[in-house]
Each structure stands twice: as C-alpha cells, then as structure tokens.
C-alpha cells in the first residue's frame, strides 16, 4: 500500500497546477523512492517529468510499485478542497480502484477525506538520455516568466542564444522584434536574483513560446529556474524542489529557417 504524508498540501497543489494545462491523464508512479510522473503533451512536443522523493514526505510508505492513473482535472477539483496550510496524505491499496486524499488542518481538528476514481492509462515511458549540455543557465524563475510573457506578445517563437556575451532571448514578429540579454550576475544580498551562465560551447536554438509560457506556471515552486541547452536537442527547464525533488519540462526545438 501507499501512504505518503506531505506537510504542505500546497506543494502538491502547485505542482498539479503547473502541469494540468499541458497534460491531462497521467500515471503517478509510486515506489519506495517516491512518486514520479512522466507525461507528454498531446502534440508530443513537450514532456513533463516530476519526481517527489520519499524524503519529501514524512512518513512515506510504499510496499510495491503502484501506478495511480489520475485525470488532472479531477485531481484539481479535489485539491481545491484543501486549504493551503493543510497536511496532505495520499493513500492507496496495492491494486487500487481509487486514490484517497486526506487533508488535515494543522491548527484545528478538521479532517477532510476525498477519493478519486483511478483510470487505466497506457502510457509509454520515454528514456531521456544523460546529456552534457552546451550551456546551463540559472536565473530567477520570475525573470524567465516575465521574458516569455513579454516576447509572446510579439511572436510565437523565441530564439535562445548563449555566447560569451551572455544569454539572449530574441523574437521577431509582424509588428516588430524584441530581445532580452542577460549576463552573469551575482547578488550577494539576494542570491535568488543571481544569474549564472555555464557554457562549454555556444548554443542557438528556437522554441515555441506557447510551451515556455506554460512551463512558467511552475514559477511559484522555486525562486530559480535552470535552463539546459545543447544545439539540436530538447531544452530542459528545471524547477528544483526541496529534498532533491524536481519538476522538469522538456521541449523539442523548432528546426530550420
């Protein structure tokens, strides 16, 4: 059986909120290392990869591998019933028909119990190769969100170029063009504002802004976002969570000119 208690229901709410517009029906794969999810969007252009490690829960118990097939719209409806300060416990039997969600108030004696019917989801898992990325950029998540939202007003696509000069986000549209360049930057008082650029080779790739704006819905999960780029491979957008957990998005580049 699965029993996973999360001190902050809000964390799970935010994760589901961040991915629910990209993927609809997902398997939450539970085993003794934690709860993982991998799902592609309908167009097979973007992929979500979530890992909530067992250390993120207290206690965490999962005796055998269980795949919980859940519709995220249904899950969102139930998670709305949790207060943000509630403690969330996920429970399931070994061959479950339902997943149970228990919300406990830390301050009062309220206990709310919900269940969601599970779905049989035949989802193929993709092997994501280990990649030595040509450029890795860590920057404030809010800054990345701002850039994507600003540029989508002008164009469908953004080129991300990383060179010795820094990282340049540029777009061209019908009304004109836009570009934002960031250089490495260290803020001693506010390290969450740092921009760190590690580059082993110059990279230049073009991506659909629609997907990037969608990924940025995860901005509330982490102060910083990490972008990993190599020429001609999918972009990795990573939001780190406490206890070595993470929410990652992969996006296939646009090809040709």
């Amino acid at each position: 059986m699965l029993e996973a208690r999360l001190e902050q229901a809000n964390l799970f709410k935010k994760v589901v909120d961040a991915i629910k517009d990209l993927v609809q029906d997902c398997n939450f794969d539970c085993n003794d290392s934690g709860i993982a999810l991998q799902a592609m969007d309908n167009s097979h252009v973007a992929l979500v990869s979530m890992m909530l490690r067992s250390e993120s829960f207290a206690p965490f118990r999962c005796d055998r591998n269980i795949a919980l097939g859940i519709n995220l719209t249904s899950l969102t409806k139930v998670l709305k019933c949790a207060q943000s300060d509630d403690i969330l416990t996920l429970k399931a039997e070994d061959a479950p028909d339902v997943v149970e969600l228990v919300f406990e108030s830390a301050e009062s004696d309220r206990i709310s119990e919900y269940s969601i019917k599970l779905m049989d989801i035949d989802q193929e898992h993709l092997g994501i190769p280990e990649t030595d990325y040509g450029a890795t950029i860590s920057m404030p998540a809010a800054e990345f969100q701002r850039i994507c939202r600003d540029l989508i007003a002008l164009s469908e696509s953004v080129s991300i170029e990383c060179s010795k000069e820094g990282v340049k986000f540029a777009c061209q549209g019908d009304i004109g063009s836009g570009a934002v360049t960031l250089r490495q930057h260290t803020n001693v008082d506010k390290p969450e504002m740092n921009v760190e650029i590690n580059m082993s080779e110059p990279v230049s790739l073009t991506f659909s802004l629609k997907y990037l704006v969608n990924f940025c819905k995860a901005s509330g999960l982490s102060n910083q976002v990490r972008l990993c780029l190599s020429n001609e491979v999918p972009l990795l957008v990573e939001y780190s969570l406490a206890n070595n957990s993470h929410l990652r998005f992969y996006l296939a580049p646009k090809i040709g000119d």
């Binding site: 252009v45 993709l126 092997g127 190769p129 999918p234 296939a252 646009k254 040709g256």
Partner: peptide
C-alpha cells in the same frame, strides 16, 4: 519559418 518537430526524435520509448 521554422518547423516544430516532436520529442520522439530525441527520446526513445523504454
């Protein structure tokens, strides 16, 4: 214009 390719080109099913 540039074309949007899919992820399956890069990530193979396990």
């Amino acid at each position: 214009a540039s074309a949007q390719g899919g992820l399956m080109k890069y990530f193979a099913p396990k």
